[in-house]
Simulated scan of single mutants.
Amino acid sequence: MRRSRFLQAAAASPLLLATARAWAGGDDRRVPVVDAHVHCFAGRDDARFPYHPLGPYRPVELATPEHLLACMNEAGVDFAVVVHPEPYQDDHRYLEHCLDVGRARLKGTCLFFADRPGSLDRMTELVRRREGQIVAARIHAYAPDRLPPFGKPELHALWRRAGDLGLAIQLHFEPRYAPGFEPLIREFPATKVILDHLGRPFQGSPEENAVVHAWAKLPNTIMKLSAFPAQDQYPHRDVGPVVRDLVKRFGPDRLIYGGGSEPEATGASYRAYREQVRSHLADLSAEDQAKVLGGTAASLFGFHNAAPKAPS
């Protein structure tokens, strides 16, 4: 579209108008940048937001929404999804604090446990109270003592309720546990299923990874390009071939990215992480790269309802 025609069309759309203003100011991005995977922690000493007794770990360093937003501004990240972390278990007070600080720029995922009494009602109450701000329900399956009730009515009910509430299901799992999820992915095709951290391919055998790769044929699955391991750390493997294979399997309309916002992150390091992700997308057009780095997530999580913030 020519610039003049774009500016004319923008008058009828708040989102296009915001994009047009950014374009006029020199920002030629057509879609927002969306980080789909950040964690925030209040630390051990904030009595307002204590870690849960059942949390598997207790971070010492702070990772506040204020620091996140500062890094986002410097790195040109418009929106982000705060993935509610396990140290808080099903206590979402700090997530709600983050959403209050971030306003329209942050949304969040929730964590409820299918086999704990009252989880469905509490999830429903949170989602309705935080209308439009909770976008997914996360399920973990990565250790024998951290598994959902596979094959039982409780997990089926949680999956159904999340779908009824308009949430995606976000899976953080080792490939060996993938078969337990597949019946539900197939039974509820209208519910989007986000696969965290490349599907954790280095924790799976070729046969186990093949199950996850086959999900690329299921249109409700979305792969998240996140948690890239450094090659000088265990398992000492180059992530590049894995990412390029997933890009071919899932395509830009079913790929999102996340990560880079660590407690010690700066705007420069945060941007550098995104450019690392982009380096594995070289076979895609600029338009499709933009989808992976924000466009697909913006559509999935409803960030198009708010104007993107141009980077400083």
Rank of each mutant, 00 (worst) to 15 (best):
F6P: 00
L7F: 09
Q8I: 04
A10N: 07
L17V: 13
A18F: 03
A20E: 07
R21C: 08
R29L: 00
V31S: 02
D35S: 07
D46T: 10
F49E: 07
H52R: 10
H52S: 11
G55M: 15
V60N: 07
E61S: 09
T64C: 06
P65Q: 08
D78C: 14
V83H: 04
V83A: 03
H84E: 09
P85T: 07
Y94F: 09
H97K: 09
D100F: 06
G102D: 04
G102A: 13
A104L: 08
A104P: 12
R105L: 03
C110F: 01
L111H: 10
L111W: 04
A114V: 05
M123H: 04
R129A: 12
Q133V: 02
I134P: 00
R138L: 02
A141H: 10
P149G: 11
P149V: 04
H156F: 11
R160E: 08
R160A: 12
G163H: 05
L167R: 02
I169G: 02
H172R: 12
E174H: 10
E174V: 07
P175C: 12
R176N: 08
R176Q: 11
R176G: 05
Y177N: 10
A178F: 02
L184P: 02
I185D: 02
R186Y: 11
P189T: 14
T191F: 03
V193S: 04
L195V: 04
D196G: 12
D196H: 08
L198A: 03
R200P: 03
F202K: 10
Q203R: 10
S205Q: 15
E207R: 05
E208S: 15
V212I: 08
V212M: 11
A216L: 13
L218D: 13
M223A: 11
L225H: 03
F228S: 02
D232M: 12
P235S: 05
H236L: 15
V239I: 08
R244T: 03
R244A: 09
D245G: 05
G251V: 09
R254D: 00
T266A: 06
G267V: 15
S269M: 12
R274A: 04
R274L: 13
V277K: 00
R278Y: 05
L281H: 09
D283L: 15
D288V: 14
D288W: 15
L293C: 07
G294K: 00
L300Q: 00
F301A: 03
G302K: 04
H304V: 03
